[in-house]
């Protein structure tokens, strides 16, 4: 494949000098350079495209009952989106259950818009042309809590129960690799390959992690939500498939969100 041409040799020599300089760099700079990469990405977040589509979906009349989600109560009254994500998961009396955003959206889509669960969850996680309404709606609602402080309640007994269960599940080991959530997220200052692993049991890390999801994942070219985040963690934990809005989902999300209380919400973000 390589074919030299005499006339270009001088230029080649000049470039060799340049590349030797580059080789002298040391690995201690790696993390600094990764940080530069992340900063370079922050300026144009494709999550914007999901937020815009989600807002349209929120306002559109959809489903067999042909109504919009503008009467959906995310916990702060029907139709109130501003700041709602920062207080989820929470207990909803109408369902007698603690719900995270995505289980609540599913609830509104089935009870108010009249969709079946299967219809509402036709594409739980987007893949290229197969776009997920759930991810777009979540991006929109989450974006409406930017700058709001996380304030997840433990006032109701079921909220306390969900937290305690989430904490217990966080340490539950299983599968061929013996992994629990805590295997990767129970200690401070660790990383997997070059990715920092937040210690989700510690306030500062838990805050930083939770307030930056949903996020546009550049590795996938998709916007991902917390439900996806949990699913993909369990996949890599070698567990079976986590069901959308299951008790395990809600409990873990309650544990994670509550541990982030007090921090300013700042998502959808952009991540590797």
């Amino acid at each position: 494949m390589m074919q030299w041409r005499g006339g270009a040799l001088m230029l080649g020599a000049a470039l060799v000098a340049v590349s030797v300089g580059a080789q002298a760099q040391s690995g201690g700079d790696t993390i600094k350079k990764i940080e530069e990469y992340r900063q370079a990405l922050a300026d144009g977040n494709p999550a914007d495209l999901w937020e815009a589509r989600g807002e349209d979906l929120w306002k559109q009349k959809r489903g067999p009952k042909n109504v919009s989600l503008e009467r959906c109560d995310l916990g702060k009254g029907p139709g109130v989106v501003k700041g709602a994500y920062a207080e989820l998961p929470r207990y909803f009396a109408d369902a007698d259950r603690v719900m995270d955003l995505e289980s609540r959206l599913l609830h509104c889509m089935t009870t108010q818009q009249g969709m079946t669960r299967a219809e509402a969850l036709k594409v739980p996680f987007g893949d290229g042309e197969k776009r997920s309404d759930m991810e777009a709606l979540s991006a929109y609602v989450a974006g409406e809590s930017r700058g709001v402080k996380m304030n997840v309640s433990q006032a109701h007994a079921k909220e306390r129960q969900a937290y305690a269960l989430g904490q217990k599940l966080f340490y539950y080991r299983g599968g061929p690799h013996d992994f629990a959530c805590a295997t990767c997220h129970g200690e401070a200052n660790k990383r997997i390959r070059l990715q920092d692993l937040p210690n989700l049991t510690e306030t500062k890390d838990a805050q930083k992690a939770y307030t930056t999801w949903p996020a546009y994942r550049v590795s996938q070219g998709e916007l991902r939500t917390m439900q996806w985040r949990l699913n993909d963690c369990f996949r890599q934990q070698r567990f079976p498939f986590l069901e959308f809005g299951s008790d395990t989902s809600v409990a873990l999300l309650t544990f994670l969100a509550r541990n982030a209380n007090g921090a300013e919400f700042n998502a959808p973000a952009i991540k590797r």
């Binding site: 350079k33 992340r38 996938q220 070219g221």
Partner: peptide, 9 residues
Amino acid sequence: PEIAENGAV
């Protein structure tokens, strides 16, 4: 950047 965390972007 000099190092890209992901080649896709």
